[in-house]
Write a protein that binds this DNA or RNA. Sequence first.
RNA 1: GUCCUCGUAGUUAAAUGGAUAUAACCGCCCCCUCCUAAGGGGCAAUUACAGGUUCGAUUCCUGUCGAGGACACCA
Length: 558
Amino acid sequence: MSIVLNFKSYLAELFARALREVAPEQVGAIVLIERPKQAAHGDYACNLAMQLAKPLRKSPRDIAQALIAALPESDVIEKVEIAGAGFINVFITKTAKQAIVHTVLHAGAGYGHLHLGAGCKVQVEFVSANPTGPLHVGHGRGAAVGDCLCNVLHAAGWEVTREFYYNDAGAQIENLMRSVQLRCQGVTPDDPRWPEGGYRGDYIAEVANAYMAQETVESDDQHVVGKGDIFDTEAIRHFAVAYLRREQDLDLRAFNVEFDVFALESALYSSGKVEEAVQGLIASGHTYEQDGALWLRTTDFGDDKDRVMRKADGGYTYFVPDVAYHLDKWRRGFVRVINEQGADHHSTITRVRAGLQALDAGIPQGWPDYVLHQMVTVLKNGEEVKISKRAGSYVTLRDLIDEVGCDATRYFLAARHPDSQLVFDIDLAKSKCNDNPVYYIQYAHARISTVLELWGGEHLSLLQANVGLLDSEYETALLQQLIDYPQIIELAAEDLAPHLVAFYLKDLAAAFHSYYNASRFLVEDEAIKCARLALITAAAQVMRNGLALLGVSAPDKM
RNA sequence: GUCCUCGUAGUUAAAUGGAUAUAACCGCCCCCUCCUAAGGGGCAAUUACAGGUUCGAUUCCUGUCGAGGACACCA
């Protein structure tokens, strides 16, 4: 019996071989294997014959006939049929499906790991919040989507680097410094002296108090001691940045998100990378001077108007360090880079890509990739929540974690397509009943754990189970879910769509709950009991694997 | 005004260009002497509109309408 880890790619290979025989000149055709929606259409379907109909000037059914004849022998294929306009429907043998139980039990946490990335390096930049306050819900969505995406890419075989970029200098940081300085002097936001762009949240007072108390602050990438000097703006600035970075680190840690690299905008200046990028752009001939400013002709690369690089006052606009930063990513060997950001940043995409093209550094067009997530609104008691007491003007990630827990927060923020707007319903996320998908999935895992504990046997003995006894409609459905898992990873990785994992887990849990309700596992017949326990042990394994990608726990008891 | 994303059952959402569009919630009806009813089974209900490309369109293209966002020598 062949051991098949991934049926889809296995069949794709068989059809590719048939294609080489039937139409060698068409080997460029894309062999697509899909899961039909209806069971009558088999377990897998291939549309190759319809694709080839036009170039080969033959009827799809004739081509299908030839492909089937050329299909290599395989003991996992029960039968092959031609249907409809020319679909080739493949039916998998029961034995091959049942074997998935042993495949999963043997692979364990490695089940679902693929080699799509072939160990290539990919860098994912996400969150990238400036250190001017606690992280808000939007950052939370970025953190959840970005981190899950990293997990999925890792599972798909990429070598992933998680990176967080932030601005530790510039106008917003200046505002932050002044706000803290005023708080040190006892001035509050309701005072007429409070500046226009000042930060009004209560956390500014906390920063000021810590600075005056000469506290020590350590974040993932900063270490500083408060000087307590109200007039040393440099010391205040440095302290405030470190303090708020640490706050964000604590939020992220509570959210199970860890970064490999923190990149600072100021470092791009001090290392000369910004200047180097500017010189590169000037040398490329895509710049010009006008009205005392230096412009980049981004319209050469699809932008709707040219952009200023160096302002008349001599300072660079923000997109220049952005370009320098991305050039640096490229030089660090990241052939693939994905930026996960809020959709309000979409206007930077064209500019950054244009700047990189203008540099003529061999960077491919359309590099880097972007995943933009839409707005999050928070709902509680049916009403929109806008204010957090501590932050002043927005709902913080910490508010959500404290209120509904890390698991539910991660699940809800990652379980929707990034492109669609998200309403975070706090009451739903908190509810411990069946309309809450997080609990629904976790409950399935807990149920399996309970059964296995009651059984009390040695898990290793399940490797000997006779899975040929798994034959009911519920068992078949659950087997199929287990078989589908690697393909979900593949899809999620290719589409940069981690939410697919969340949907899959709901389906997997549903298949288990139905099975649970319809059958007993701890039955008299030893062989049947072992077969069933082996199946649900495998199901629990896949639940753990999938939940791990989402960063959600898989409890044994609830 | 220009650009970007989205428009799918009453509601919230899935669907790599494939065959009869999938779930959950709500509503109605059923199932615990049972390994957790935080569960299961059933009924009803959907692609905004108009064109186009295709053997085939929820998916791609154009336009209209609707929701959100972006449009600084701010970041």
